[in-house]
Design a binder for these strands. Structure first.
Lengths: 110, 110
DNA sequence: TTATTATATTGCAATATTACGATAAAGATT
DNA sequence: AATCTTTATCGTAATATTGCAATATAATAA
């Protein structure tokens, strides 16, 4: 096959997986880290920071945007990118949930 | 091409991406959720819970294990799987880092 | 020993991802 | 208008992922 059987899973599971998947590439992690490090939101120079060609970076930005992890606003002929906290909070909630369960259990047999 | 240029990124970026990537499939999210929901660690019935064939589940488990997200111990002829908190704490630290920066900035232009 | 049970591995087809050159699109500058 | 700057899209090649049937492996049970 090759395609994920998304129909067989819950919407929440698919959503979580989609967000995690979007973070699942070092270039995209690097983009997030760069967006955090710069004061301004005018981030047209992401291409200059990454060791990848412009079309490749554009593609990675598109994936982050599709997953809802970043937002992009048009500013003149440049684009202002920044992090969308709402989406990342979904992943955070998942981890909080995991921690909660693990602390209750504490029945680690491994 | 097709292969990620992992050499061009930091070890930490690659590590974060690898963990996120492993979570980037609904079946693997479902496996984590199942491991949380069961009291015991004897989890040989993961295959029965998922809508996927046994070899496929085995493969997903392998990927979670490779990423360090779960641990597996042999118990007789079954295998006991459970979540590895250490690895997930790496992702959590990343999110804490993001939150920290976003709270300091608050210069959201988007 | 011969099943039986539980999990892993192999092999393969279908599909997705990654990367980039070439090119397009759109606003800014001259 | 002609050009520059910035970002997106198209096309394509290389590689990775997903899924499963068939088979292997290994411990247990009969």
């Amino acid at each position: 096959m090759g395609a994920s059987k998304t129909d067989y899973f819950t919407e929440k599971q698919n959503q979580l997986a989609a967000i995690a998947k979007a973070l699942g590439h070092p270039a995209r992690v690097a983009i997030i880290e760069y967006l955090l490090s710069v004061d301004s939101c005018i981030c047209g120079d992401i291409v200059n920071v990454l060791p990848l060609a412009q079309p490749t970076v554009s593609q990675h930005l598109k994936e982050l945007k599709n997953a809802g992890i970043i937002k992009g606003n048009i500013e003149g002929n440049a684009i202002c990118y920044c992090i969308n906290e709402e989406t990342l909070s979904i992943l955070q909630a998942f981890f909080a949930h995991i921690n909660n369960h693990l602390q209750i259990k504490k029945s680690n047999c491994c």
